[in-house]
Each structure stands twice: as structure tokens, then as C-alpha cells.
Nucleic acid binder design. Structure first.
Length: 272
DNA sequence: AGATTCGCCTGAGAGC
DNA sequence: TGCTCTCAGGCGAATC
């Protein structure tokens, strides 16, 4: 389930092979992703040269020209493989981009919640990107910013942290871990969180996201790094999918509860 | 307008 | 064994 650290891992891997490389061929599968490939996709992409990829929230952007980008979103089950030979398409391979340096970028997505698109123009004016909140690792994501956005809210903190317009890139796994580290219940309402607690949340977020990036993301079921390795942050998870195991702090049982149709895992003793 | 729910999709795993 | 059911969850659309 690719969240920010998983996409960061993908972006870093792509950066090593695509910069300065020219697209020589493009394969697209028959099946429609969440958004279909744009018209003339192959025509647009073939012959283009990539410059340095970057990431915003859970999106990976590969510049292919002036204010023009190949946009990749991995959805739930999207994976990138990078190979130095031209592979026959496997099941759920939806896109293969062949480069003049003999590397091949493969987009594979079992559940097809992801998409690949081409966008143009200033990102600040883009429909997707203009709405996103700050990156969790940026200076803009700090306690006063968070406090001002949530201190009138009757929504649960779990939902507020998943809201991409508040902070961009967090998903279910990391929000569970962040709230555990912050000792705050996922059910606590935004308006009942002090600025001091906001500071704790912000610091926990930055630490967990940094550590997850360093570990190559989290492999629960779907995520693999583009080199085929797993994401090792799974080894550091304290609560996510740990129902009935023991809390690392107090040894009492981790509980699960459904909030807005999504599983939350927490320690009722430690998290208030 | 803000909050909540639904639908998209496949495969793994549970239960019978 | 094989069928049916449930679950995973990012995100935008639909609905309350």
C-alpha cells in the first residue's frame, strides 16, 4: 500500500536510471487504470528525454519537457520494476517504458487503483496538486499550522491526518504508527488536541516518515522496491495489523477499531 | 459547505 | 475440493 515513503523509494530508484535517458518504446496494456491513458500517450512519450524525477505526496513526477510531466500514482497495489532487459509483459503489467540506455520501467498494478497520466503547466495551478497540504517533512508542517487547522474540527484525529489537504502523503499504516508514537487515541477529536499535542504529532510524523524512507517503505502485501527488495519498515511497526499482540510500551493488548470504514490499531492504555 | 459513504478492483484467506 | 464471502485501502464522486 504505497504511501509517501514507498513512493519516495520508487522515485529514488527511478532517478538512478531515467535522468537524461530517452524513451525508445512504450507498451500499454489493454485494461483501464483508474484514469485511462491519455490520447496519443505513446506518441507524446516516445522520443522524450527525462530529467530528474521528484515526488509530491503520493505522486511521482517525471519531467519530460518544459512544465510537462509523466505522472505516476501507485494507488493501492501499484509497483514499479526496473530491468536492464526487455521483459515480456507479466500479468497486471500496464505500462512498459523502454529507454535508450537499455533500462525498462514497468508499471504493474493488480487492483488498478493507480494511474499514469501526462500533466502540463504550473503544478500550483493543477487540479490535483493545488489542493494538497504541505509535505510532512517540510518546515511548513509544524505545530501552529496543524493546531490552527484542527482545533475547531469535530473530526477524529485519525481522519484529519489522512486528509491530504491538511498534510500530504500519509496513509493508514503510518497514521496508525504516528498516533501510537504520539500516545493519542485515533478517536480523539481535533478540537480536543492541544498545541502541545500538535507538536508531539508533528515530531512523531517526521520521525516515522524519515525512518520509513530509510527502511525502503513498508511491505505488508503489495509493496516491493523497484529492485525487487521488500520494504523493511514492516519490522518497525508497533501497532498496524497487530491486533491482540502486546503493546511495546505497556504490554497490554493492541485493539482494533473501525473509523470511517478503515481499520485503526491502537493501545487503549497508552493512547488517550 | 462539511461530513460521511460508496465504488472502483483483484487476490488472499476464512468458513462451510 | 470448491464455492462464497470478507477484507485490504487511495481517492474522487455521490450522498447525507
Amino acid at each position: 500500500m504505497p504511501e509517501l515513503p514507498e513512493v519516495e523509494t520508487v522515485k529514488n530508484a527511478l532517478s538512478k536510471v531515467v535522468v537524461g535517458a530517452k524513451v525508445t518504446n512504450v507498451f500499454t496494456g489493454e485494461k483501464k487504470l483508474r484514469i485511462p491513458f491519455p490520447n496519443n500517450f505513446k506518441k507524446i512519450v516516445i522520443g522524450r528525454t527525462f530529467s530528474k524525477p521528484f515526488r509530491r505526496a503520493k505522486y511521482c513526477l517525471l519531467p519530460i519537457g518544459n512544465f510537462e510531466f509523466l505522472l505516476i500514482h501507485l494507488g493501492m497495489s501499484g509497483k514499479i520494476r526496473i530491468l536492464n532487459f526487455n521483459p515480456p509483459p507479466e500479468k497486471h503489467d500496464h505500462l512498459i517504458i523502454s529507454l535508450d540506455n537499455d533500462f525498462h520501467i514497468i508499471y504493474n498494478d493488480t487492483r488498478r487503483f493507480g494511474f499514469v497520466d501526462i500533466i502540463k503547466g504550473d503544478l500550483d495551478k493543477n487540479k490535483i496538486f493545488s489542493k494538497l497540504g504541505p509535505e510532512p517533512l517540510s518546515a511548513k508542517f509544524e505545530k501552529t499550522y496543524l493546531f490552527n487547522l484542527i482545533n475547531n474540527s469535530s473530526q477524529k484525529i485519525k481522519n484529519l491526518l489522512l486528509d491530504q489537504t491538511i498534510v500530504a502523503g500519509l496513509g493508514n499504516i503510518y497514521v496508525n504508527e504516528i498516533l501510537f508514537k504520539s500516545l493519542i487515541s485515533p478517536k480523539r477529536l481535533g478540537k480536543n488536541i492541544s498545541i502541545k499535542k500538535c507538536e508531539i504529532i508533528v515530531n512523531s510524523t517526521k520521525l516515522i516518515i524519515k525512518n520509513a524512507i530509510n527502511a525502503g517503505g513498508t511491505t505488508i502485501k503489495d509493496h516491493i522496491q523497484p529492485d525487487g527488495n521488500l520494504g523493511y519498515f514492516k519490522n518497525y511497526l508497533k501497532v498496524y495489523a497487530k491486533t491482540n499482540s502486546n503493546c511495546a510500551n505497556c504490554n497490554s493488548e493492541i485493539k482494533e477499531v473501525v473509523i470511517s470504514n478503515r481499520k485503526s490499531y491502537y493501545c487503549p492504555q497508552c493512547q488517550r
